[in-house]
């Protein structure tokens, strides 16, 4: 990063941090600049990576065959139909494109999801206990699985054995939420550390470079 780029990045970082004191024009300037530049960048990248190779080049390069033209224009039409729903006249045809997309996506996603997220996890849940102390871990996982499922089973009142299981399930859920919260704090602090590292190292040169 050149010195000018570093100064611009440092200025924008401080603009964003200034919101911690209170909302102010510097923060809003950085926010709007970020949203605008991100949208512009995304548009340019998508044009270069999607529209250009899939729509423009197949039709304009060399001598396109009728098959190429048809295979380019059909997806293009479906894509345009999705956008066309902004006009009430095209709300109906827009659904054709969405239906096509949903159908394809479901066909691709459902088997993969069932295999990876349901069957593989079920298979892991019923495997034999690990030997030695690993059995304690396996037992905890099994108890956690059953009691959490009991908590989310609302077709019967949480009373008696079912109620006890559900209450134990809540404890397992709380432990899981606690672990997630701890990791979330760590993630947010990591982002702060990265920006402070940038300010102290790349901008102010107070700590050595990597």
């Amino acid at each position: 990063m050149s010195p000018v780029e570093t100064w611009i990045a440092a200025f924008l970082t401080l603009c964003v941090f200034s919101f911690l004191y209170r909302d102010n024009p510097f923060y809003r300037f950085a926010e709007h600049l970020f949203v605008g530049s991100a949208a512009g960048y995304l548009l340019a990248v998508q044009y270069q990576n999607v529209i250009l190779p899939n729509v423009v080049l197949p039709i304009t390069t060399g001598k396109p065959t009728p098959q190429t033209i048809v295979l380019t224009l059909i997806p293009l039409m479906l894509g345009l139909l999705m956008v066309a729903r902004v006009s009430p006249r095209f709300t109906g045809p827009a659904r054709w494109a969405i239906a096509f997309y949903v159908g394809i996506y479901s066909g691709i996603a459902v088997p993969g999801y069932m295999q990876a997220q349901i069957y593989a996890q079920l298979s892991d849940a019923v495997k034999p206990f690990a030997p030695g102390w690993g059995a304690v871990n396996s037992a905890l996982v099994l108890i956690g699985l059953l009691t959490v499922l009991a908590y989310f089973f609302f077709s019967a009142p949480h009373q008696g054995l079912h109620g006890v299981s559900a209450r134990v399930g809540i404890w397992f859920l709380m432990v899981a939420f606690g672990a997630s919260f701890g990791y979330t704090v760590m993630a947010r602090v990591s982002l702060l550390i990265s920006r402070v590292q940038f300010l102290l190292r790349d901008w102010l040169h107070l700590i050595p470079m990597s």
């Binding site: 993969g112 997220q117 990791y183 760590m186 993630a187 990591s190």
Partner: peptide, 19 residues
């Protein structure tokens, strides 16, 4: 996990954000 691991049986290592 669904496609490379599930369908094509490729071993996989994941690096994820803390969240």
């Amino acid at each position: 996990i669904q496609f490379a691991v599930g369908r094509y049986r490729k071993p996989m290592v994941l690096g994820a954000t803390a969240v």
